[in-house]
Design a protein around this nucleic acid. Structure first.
Lengths: 235, 235
DNA sequence: GGGAGAGGTCACGAGATCGTCACGCGGGGG
DNA sequence: CCCCCGCGTGACGATCTCGTGACCTCTCCC
């Protein structure tokens, strides 16, 4: 199963984030044998930079890192990428596992782990991801959204969005074509405890439209309203 | 007014396959608290039958079963479904994990496990599946209903439906061929306390028909009336 | 201390949505 | 043959929802 593709031409790249050199080295060997190329990083910020410059197919992140922890790295990556993320940890505490999984991790593996299990879990995650498709940037008509760089352009011109506006646009664009309920948007952007505060949502949608929608048009081109239900990004 | 979130009336169904009654009972409670409905099965064949008749959103399968083992169940399910499958086991042997994951399982959890971890892993798997989406859409003649995106098309042309109209159509289409009594429809769309308000139901069925039925035909093609009883979506 | 940017609240006009009522039709039973 | 009940449908007013401008608070930075 591991080498059913006989093409060593361009092996899938896996970001390995761990500050213990011996772990990195071990993973490098294991991954190469399984047909992957390990991209090592020792710190969270280094990992995030590497991922932004050239997105890998997947990431293996240790929970303990010098700067940010693995959960935070997971969260930052998830802001723009849907790549499989496996979190490694020596501690098997349930609270940590739940936090990591809720942050968007695909799996949580406690050390010591068998290398075959690790590879199997990685491949399972990649198999699933292969069905979906992750996109670091989204383009539609004249609107360009760079999720990783957090930049939005209209007709090439950068548009400044506030944090909430960008999060709103991201949530909508990630699910383009699909309807996003008021509650879903509120939960994703403001947090689950704000699912009933619809008025601020309206206000920010209005401001967002003012910045990205063409001023002349009568009907919105990108964000359309589903009365009584929510909003959707046109597809 | 009615239900903005389409979910509180119909919790996601999770197939639970385990021959130990106390495990099944425990999972039932845990899953209900997390907002799922557990569909219990004690044997592999029972589980496969249940899944075939009415596919659940996900499955939790014990590795040890009276007839077939969990890996085989996983394999059989994978032949036609991409639902998230979590394999449970008391043995943490690596070989088993690899076999299960390679058979297509999404996760492998060893007992004893924390219930919060289990729920978190289940939700993580469902979240991923939601993005990949094996398209919960229904197609009949020229009518296409995309339940996830909440979009209805006739001959490719999008048709705008109000919330109530869509909920009605969804309730009918989900049970296509089956008769939906007035009371059932009212309970599902308006809520249990409206089961006797038939007149609004008539009005909205009329409006819905006006939008999706071909204008020329005399007899409805999609929604037929069962006089004195209710409506059904033709199959 | 001042000012800019961000975000929340309020108020109000416009439009969409919903329930109700009235009316017409058709079939089955008395 | 006529009546009555269930159904479909058009019209209409009440209500809810949405978009938007104005204003306020808070924070951050100079």
């Amino acid at each position: 199963m591991s080498l059913q593709e006989p093409t060593p031409a361009k092996p899938p790249r896996v970001l390995v984030v761990d500050d213990e050199p011996q772990i990195v080295r071990a993973l490098k060997v294991v991954l190469r044998e399984a047909g992957f190329e390990a991209v090592p990083a020792e710190t969270a910020s280094e990992a995030l930079d590497l991922a932004a410059v050239r997105p890998p197919e997947a990431a293996i992140v240790d929970l303990v890192l010098p700067d940010l922890d693995g959960v935070e790295v997971t969260r930052r990556l998830r802001e723009w990428s849907q790549m499989p993320i496996l979190v490694l940890s020596a501690v098997g505490e349930e609270e940590q596992k739940v936090r990591a999984l809720e942050a968007g991790a695909d799996d949580y593996i406690t050390k010591p782990f068998g290398t075959r299990e690790l590879v199997a879990r990685l491949q399972a995650a990649l198999r699933r991801a292969g069905r979906a498709e992750g996109e670091p940037s989204i383009e539609r008509d004249g609107l360009e959204i760079d999720l990783a760089a957090r930049i939005v352009r209209r007709d090439g011109q950068p548009v400044h969005l506030t944090p909430i506006e960008f999060d709103l646009l991201r949530a909508l664009a990630r699910n383009r074509g699909r309807l996003m309920t008021h509650r879903k948007l509120l939960a994703e952007v403001w947090g689950p405890e704000y699912v009933d505060d619809i008025q601020p949502l309206r206000t920010h949608i209005a401001r967002l439209r003012g910045k990205i929608e063409p001023q002349d048009a009568e009907t919105p081109r990108y964000i359309v309203t589903d009365p009584g239900v929510g909003y959707r990004f046109t597809d």
